[in-house]
Simulated scan of single mutants.
Amino acid sequence: MKPIYKGKTKDVYALEDGNYLLKFKDDVTGENGVFDPGANTVGLTLEGAGRAGLSLTKFFFEILKEKGIPTHYIDANIENATMTVKPATVFGNGLEVICRYRAVGSFLRRYGMYAEEGQALDAFVEVTIKDDERQDPPISEDALDMLGVLSKAEYAVLKDLTKQIGQVVKEELAKKDIDLYDIKFEFGRVGEDNQIVLIDEISGGNMRAYKDGVYVEPLELEKLMLV
């Protein structure tokens, strides 16, 4: 294996067959020891978080595969906390796409003049630039197109996939009486035809979920979903 990239929550290696291996870590994003899926720093280390995140990711990616929704997923080894994926190129230096069902987190911080905490949102899709130095600023469809990060046609695909995948996750959580408030995705281009697919992971570390009005920690979410 050839090391390619060391990230906050996982490392990436190139395999001899041309695919990539993602190694999930026990680090999660947050600030001052408090988990926050929207943070751009590692806030704390939770023992078992890597395997838990991968277990949930495998669960969701296999559901998406059954539904014919494109992802980079090939297979996963839970014991080793690794996932084999197709090679993908990201948009620009990386984008994060958030699907919001409730007004919380950075959405509430920005729009609190008009929104109330926990207010219902209709699968609001928001794109932010992965840029730690500038605190991951939101960016509009027009700006993405003008700056050559992705075209308006690609943006439409991105938005549609975000809503589709968000709904799948929301429905699966609802089966366990868990309410999804928001979820963060990453997408990339795969293959010669540059097909837009979901990349990275779908785990507790990428979402805010609540049960009976109480926030569900990432490790607890995995236990609730996979029992």
Rank of each mutant, 00 (worst) to 15 (best):
L64A: 10
I78N: 15
F59S: 08
V190T: 01
P218D: 02
H72G: 01
A103K: 07
Y73Q: 04
R109Q: 12
R109S: 08
G118A: 12
E62S: 14
D75S: 15
G191V: 08
G50V: 13
G94W: 03
G105A: 05
D145Y: 13
V157L: 03
L64T: 04
E66N: 14
F35Q: 10
Q167T: 15
V42G: 00
T29Y: 02
N206G: 13
E62H: 13
Y73I: 09
G94K: 00
V214I: 12
P138Q: 09
V190P: 00
I196P: 02
Y114R: 15
S140A: 02
L121V: 15
L180D: 12
G33P: 11
V12K: 04
K223A: 06
D160A: 13
K8G: 06
I199V: 05
D182N: 14
V85L: 08
K184T: 07
V216A: 00
K163Q: 15
Q195F: 06
N40D: 07
P70K: 02
V12D: 00
I199N: 00
L95Y: 02
G118S: 09
P70I: 03
G166N: 05
R102I: 11
G68N: 13
K223S: 11
G68M: 13
K163P: 13
F107N: 10
K163F: 10
E126H: 04
G30L: 06
L147K: 07
K152W: 00
T57L: 09
I139Q: 00
E222P: 01
I199D: 00
V169I: 15
F35T: 12
D122Y: 07
V34P: 02
R134T: 07
Y155D: 02
V157K: 08
F59Y: 15
V157R: 10
K130H: 05
L173K: 07
A76D: 01
D212A: 14
Y101D: 03
I129L: 13
D122V: 06
L158P: 04
G188K: 01
K2P: 01
L46T: 06
V85Q: 03
G191I: 10
M146T: 10
L173D: 11
A88R: 01
I63T: 09
V197L: 05
D200V: 03
S203W: 02
E16L: 14
T57S: 13
K130P: 06
D27F: 11
I139C: 01
V127Q: 10
C99R: 06
E141D: 09
A39K: 05
A88Q: 01
D122S: 05
L21D: 04
D17R: 12
V34H: 03
G68P: 04
V227M: 13
T84H: 05
D131E: 11
E117H: 15
G68L: 14
F24G: 00
E31R: 12
N77L: 03
G48S: 07
G204R: 03
L226T: 07
N80P: 05
V90M: 08
F107I: 15
V12W: 02
D182Y: 14
E133P: 01
A103T: 06
R109N: 12
E47G: 08
K65E: 11
D142H: 08
L161S: 07
Q164A: 12
Y181D: 14
G18Y: 10
T29Q: 05
T45L: 00
K8N: 02
I199P: 00
L198N: 01
S203F: 04
S106K: 09
